[in-house]
Design a protein around this nucleic acid. Sequence first.
DNA 1: TAGATTGTTAATCGATTAACAATC
DNA 2: TAGATTGTTAATCGATTAACAATC
Lengths: 208, 208
Amino acid sequence: MNPDYVPDIVISRLPGYLQALNQMAKEGMHTVSSQALAERLGSTAAQIRKDLSLFGGFGKQGTGYSIFHLIEQLQLILNLDRIWRVALVGAGDLGRALVRYQGFANRGIEIALVFDNHPNVVGTQVGAVMVRHVDTMVADIRAMAIKIAILTVPGEAAQSTADSLVEAGIKAVLNYAPVTLKLPADVHIQHIDPVLQLQRMMFYLGDD
Amino acid sequence: MNPDYVPDIVISRLPGYLQALNQMAKEGMHTVSSQALAERLGSTAAQIRKDLSLFGGFGKQGTGYSIFHLIEQLQLILNLDRIWRVALVGAGDLGRALVRYQGFANRGIEIALVFDNHPNVVGTQVGAVMVRHVDTMVADIRAMAIKIAILTVPGEAAQSTADSLVEAGIKAVLNYAPVTLKLPADVHIQHIDPVLQLQRMMFYLGDD
DNA sequence: TAGATTGTTAATCGATTAACAATC
DNA sequence: TAGATTGTTAATCGATTAACAATC
């Protein structure tokens, strides 16, 4: 189904396309042109057509794209035709907020395991999940064959925790700790740091 | 101090440079070469030198960069030589976790105002801040001349809340809601959506 | 059929990388 | 001085945009 190679920058845009299409479906729309989708996304028609054409011809000249069909195709491309179980490490304020976040289950993500090392937290319930001790983390993740982890531990603990996650077979890490992780090349990393994103905007807020 | 034009992609890298340099300073280092900094960041020496050279010659041939001096310069470039007050809207789990997040105060960000519309939440204390009702949001933000907002409201409320924020004089929005905001061109937007970042990685986790 | 819109090719634009003279 | 490393120019690479024949 997928071509040999697709630039990562294209992949990075597909989830946004999918989100917009789902919204449009909810609004009762049935077809959409590249132009209309581009307007919704703040993108361009040419870019959307080019991105999608890498995976095949999903549209119809004169009409545009069937929203339902395109959603289906994008879900297949991104491997979203299943529920992905995720392990979360670090049940502090942020970690617990993420476990309770409604937007995951909606979109095929299940936080199946939660870990912490603090005795006051281990054994407590967060949402529907019981917090386990990190001592059993590698074994627990291996046992469930989980491939994706969310890392919400303090910066000092992030690298060593990430190393353990790799040992446990994790292949994708969503890192909320304010450090650059060094992991093997076959492990995917996405970094979320609100401070870095705020600082980027502060540049433009200028000297007034 | 700043050149006429700097590509946004360069600006987007500077906060990461700063973070790595701060870490190095903490480790007791005094100078660093573009090569060593690149290794820490998973970047390249050429890119770092090129990025920095847009703002001036901060290094010394044969020696590299003074970490202290470069930190100082980057802080000036990014306008981090002050405390930025931020308004946060939406005191749900995620919003409250962000208000309590230690990493903000550390790095010159003060969450000065918190808003919600739920009677159970308005009037309660989160960290050091009292939650106010959104009815007074525009006036309160105007009164304090706050320019940056963090948006942690449900998706359905995001666009209309963002419109109010613009009305209040906000010029930069960090959006945690799972929707693409449409705002005037002079308002900067950064979008944080863990689901989109996870989906991007799921593409690579492939069909096994 | 006429109008609209795709998929794709070619042209443009911008970013990254390589290379090296300058210089600490 | 010799070695190291910058700042910058030129070369390469890749991504975006424009244009249009194909076709619904």
